[in-house]
Nucleic acid binder design. Sequence first.
DNA 1: AACAAAATTTAGGCAACCCGAAATCCACGC
DNA 2: GCGTGGATTTCGGGTTGCCTAAATTTTGTT
Lengths: 229, 229
Amino acid sequence: MPTLSMQDYAKALYVLEQRQPGRISTSALASYLDLSPAAVTEMLHRMAKVQPPLVDYRPRRGARLTTEGQRLALRMLRRHRLLERFLHDVLGFPLEQVHTEAERLEHAVSDAFIQRLAAWMGEPKSDPHGHPIPGPDLQPPDAPGRPFRSLAPDARAQVVQVCDRDPEQLRRLAALGLRPGQRFRVLERDPYEPVFRIRLEPQGTEVLVGPRLAAALRVEPLATEASSS
Amino acid sequence: MPTLSMQDYAKALYVLEQRQPGRISTSALASYLDLSPAAVTEMLHRMAKVQPPLVDYRPRRGARLTTEGQRLALRMLRRHRLLERFLHDVLGFPLEQVHTEAERLEHAVSDAFIQRLAAWMGEPKSDPHGHPIPGPDLQPPDAPGRPFRSLAPDARAQVVQVCDRDPEQLRRLAALGLRPGQRFRVLERDPYEPVFRIRLEPQGTEVLVGPRLAAALRVEPLATEASSS
DNA sequence: AACAAAATTTAGGCAACCCGAAATCCACGC
DNA sequence: GCGTGGATTTCGGGTTGCCTAAATTTTGTT
Ligand SMILES: [Mn+2]
Ligand SMILES: [Mn+2]
Ligand SMILES: [Mn+2]
Ligand SMILES: [Mn+2]
């Protein structure tokens, strides 16, 4: 089994490759993992050298996960998200705390643990932030919904995913009521600035969504029910 | 928070001090942890040097836990045993697998996790091997029952604790039916060799208990019900 | 009291990981 | 084509934790 650090690097590479297909640069990985570029270079060397190799690393042109590396990443994402589901649904951890806790636990559980936990929880398909949980076959799941910024004025939609990496932002989102499942209507989209005004349904609260929050949300458009009433 | 290794050393020192009060020798600790004596010497130095110190170490005359070290040990034992209870009762792990799994998890969970897990499980008082779970106050619990070898012929008793460190032995115990809660009567105690013959109640199965198994069991004597019938 | 065996510590190494600073590379603008 | 700034790698260092082999100390004899 790869080391704890390799597990986190693999996950990070997977997420970054999803965002922007292609090779991932040392600096992109370093800033995502909050490590020095020097540390990342070294680790990429190690991950390219283990058998089987986890990354295809070409000095000065970044790295990509190998098939084996991708399997590792998906295995870790499955663990992470299943654990988050457990922490939130069963133990009642608040949304903004589950990520940190799962980030440590994911390395300590065994495959047997995950298999039993998944069965016991009824094979959940997504974590409490709305991220899809890879199945035991480790097929890459696809991200549900689409970016918030793609919404047109007057559209109705539902939050399907919130970003889990920034606890403070997550607290803000939670305070505003923007959690997975929340429905809303776009009231206004500023034509010049990337600012939206939305109304939560059914609460009726109005919320301003700027570029920071918008980037943290993915949404699912809904049929424009009772648009004139 | 002390390192993962220090956490395991603290637990080991606590268990060994329970068995045999007084200073613990380097070699005793090394053999319990399955490490070289040199590694143990080094770690004892580190544990004596951190602030606050976890052990009182005097070169060539062994080590004892400080109050702080004992608190750490009890914190880890609470985590370990609570996790074992969860793994066995909720996820259905067999008795001989829970120890290994908990040995890793205990270092990855947070205090908040343990607090929530304990509450959710209804504050269990013992683990599936019968070991007492220290409370949140971290008071040293006392070992229930007494050694198996202290049983006299014809006595009735109940298994209250099985040793959890040897999976193979645990499988043997389970195969023989000797798990916590099992009642039995001592039919015979060899006067010369440390060998017992017992009959399980209510099954009626007869089992031979030699010195190895006897050392792995603690028992609670029962009233000699219906001794003549 | 003197030795030898046993226990323990010290010395020297190694593997993971990480960092800051120095060197190196390469791509873009002129 | 030629610098040069920014990205990247290399170098030297530091920490934790383990091992084997070589001292060293203690202990249990004769
Ligand atoms: Mn992690
Ligand atoms: Mn998540
Ligand atoms: Mn452990
Ligand atoms: Mn146990």
